[in-house]
Design a protein around this nucleic acid. Structure first.
Length: 520
DNA sequence: ACATAAGCATC
DNA sequence: ATCGGAC
DNA sequence: GTCCGATGATGCTTATGT
């Protein structure tokens, strides 16, 4: 593929917002593929180049023409900041003019930047970047059903594998791709329900399992060989030696398990998510504080289990790894499920998963037979500022800076506020229009895409909880904050206090000595 | 040598 | 992660 | 039902700046 064709197509892909058009453009790119080709398909990523690093974004393209095509590989590259910036900053003009601009920028990139980009752009697809569209495009280009491409990609954990298979062997090659032990499978995801009754109504009789606040793990074992993957199929085997040993001791020759890992304290209660992440992310770790909890099994001793109903998989899981099973109860009764939820919460966990007993393991899908249920908190907070949005939100004030009220012991009502987080979620186009129209009247200053506002607008925020923070002045930050609605009926004195936010911090269990102290 | 920022990961 | 919008 | 795009907080490792 020529550089020019690449630039032309990427510009077009960047310029259209219609999924079908993107698919068609990419399919045209992929159609002339032969097994000897190295082909570059373009994904378009969100975001803008980080300040001072724009030069990095461009040098990628200069290397693409030079890629050797020694092996019959379909290479899918994603063009990140380069194409976004190309579309947004160069304005109208011929593709060749844009190409010249790009070349000028490439030459300004340092050697390390170019090296980084080679790794990043060529031969790698960033997780989640337009994969659906790319899968459709690949299917279209080769005249096979999209579902086949997707299934192959999910089970082999990698769109590139599926693409290679169609290019080389057509439909038959796709159909031959399946679950392979020691190769990551895209994990099944869950949809959300507001309460256990709603979840059970959707699933029917279910396994109601504690939802633990840790990191997803997928464990493969074949003989003595063990591989552990994250949710995005990153290989973290070397970071978890104790877990590898535990898996080696299971009474099987080969197995694929799905679960969660987190840090559990001496009192058997979970540590904070931050603590878990600290242990989980360290490169030279002692992972003994990290415990595995498994909730599914995809393969055992030569048998794939993904197309068996959940209750049969759970029976296998119990047999193979019963000691590591996540706490769960099977029921169709909402009252029983509610009790399980209460137990999970009072034990310090996040909520429950409700999983239909007849459901199959739908790799990579947000299965309707898996529902997560977590309690939702709400707070009334004040808007301290807002940021101008990007992409489809450009021209609108989008991301809100949220403040909690400082408690006032004098009782006269304070109007001082501490920032506790930001959110852009939950805003409809109508709300974006509204706040973009209303906020300017209260602006006190503006700099670098952020406007500061007098405390005036009060907004109801839904959130999952709070976590300790070193970046915010009150020492707490919101977790997964989203806008519910504006509260024009509320007074500033009714804004929730910083202490109310702090109460949402996960409470650590008290030590025995403290319990004794407090009872005196 | 040390401090800060970028980049990527988890949720 | 979550959410709204587009398909 | 799915996918995409726009962004949240935080921790660790590595690159860059002084």
């Amino acid at each position: 593929m020529s550089f020019q064709a690449l630039v032309d197509t990427s510009s077009q892909v960047a310029a259209t917002s219609k999924r079908t058009e993107k698919t068609a453009l990419l399919a045209a790119l992929l159609a002339p593929l032969s097994p000897d080709d190295t082909v570059v398909a373009l994904g378009l990523l969100s975001g803008e180049p980080r300040q001072g690093r724009i030069g990095v974004g461009w040098s990628a393209i200069s290397n693409i023409d030079a890629q050797p095509s020694a092996t019959p590989t379909l290479k899918i590259a994603t063009i990140d900041a380069a194409i976004v910036a190309l579309a947004e900053t160069t304005g109208p003009g011929s593709a060749s003019r844009r190409a010249e601009q790009l070349h000028a920028l490439f030459s300004a990139a340092t050697a390390s930047e170019a090296d980084y980009l080679k790794r990043f752009f060529v031969g790698e697809i960033r997780q989640g970047a337009l994969e659906g569209i790319l899968a459709d495009a690949i299917a279209k280009a080769h005249g096979v059903p999209g579902t086949l491409v997707r299934r192959a990609a999910m089970l082999s954990g990698d769109l590139r594998r599926a693409a290679e298979a169609v290019v080389r062997d057509g439909r038959r090659g796709l159909e031959a791709l399946g679950l392979t032990v020691l190769t990551g499978v895209q994990p099944m995801l869950a949809s959300t329900s507001t309460d256990v009754a709603e979840a059970l109504a959707a699933t029917g009789p279910a396994s109601v399992e504690w939802k633990l606040d840790g990191a997803r793990i997928q464990v493969h074992r074949s003989g003595d060989e063990v591989q552990i993957f994250t949710r995005n199929l990153n290989d973290i085997t070397s970071r978890l030696p104790a877990m590898v040993a535990a898996v080696r001791s299971l009474p099987v020759a080969s197995v694929v398990l799905d679960g969660e890992t987190l840090s559990i304290g001496g009192d058997e209660r979970p540590e904070t998510f931050q603590e878990t992440m600290s242990r989980f992310s360290q490169d030279s770790p002692d992972d003994r504080g990290l415990r595995p909890f498994f909730f599914d099994i995809l393969h055992v001793d030569g048998r794939d289990l993904i197309d068996l109903p959940l209750h049969e998989r759970l029976a296998e899981l119990e047999r193979v790894a019963g000691q590591y099973r996540i706490p769960a109860e099977t029921t169709g009764d909402p009252a029983v499920a509610a009790t399980v939820l209460e137990q999970a919460l009072s034990s310090g966990h996040e909520g429950v998963m409700v999983k239909g007993l007849d459901g199959l393991y739908q790799a990579g899908r947000r299965g309707k037979s898996w529902r997560k249920v977590k309690p939702v908190h709400t707070l009334d907070l004040v808007v301290l500022g807002a940021e101008w949005g990007h992409g489809r939100r450009s021209g609108w004030l989008s991301n809100l800076h949220l403040g909690a009220r400082i408690d006032d012991a004098s009782g006269t009502g304070s109007d001082d506020f501490l920032m506790v987080g930001k959110t852009f979620k939950g805003l409809t186009d109508e709300l974006l229009r509204w706040q973009t129209a209303e906020f300017p009247a209260k602006v006190v200053s503006e700099s670098r895409g952020t406007v500061s506002l007098q405390p005036h607008f009060i907004v109801e925020i839904a959130l999952d909880g709070a976590q300790s923070s070193t970046t915010y002045p009150g020492g707490v930050a919101l977790r997964f904050a989203r806008v519910r609605r504006y509260r024009e009926d509320k007074l500033l004195s009714e804004v929730d206090t910083i202490n109310a936010v702090r109460k949402l911090l996960k409470e650590r269990p008290r030590q025995e000595s403290e319990k004794n102290d407090s009872s005196q």
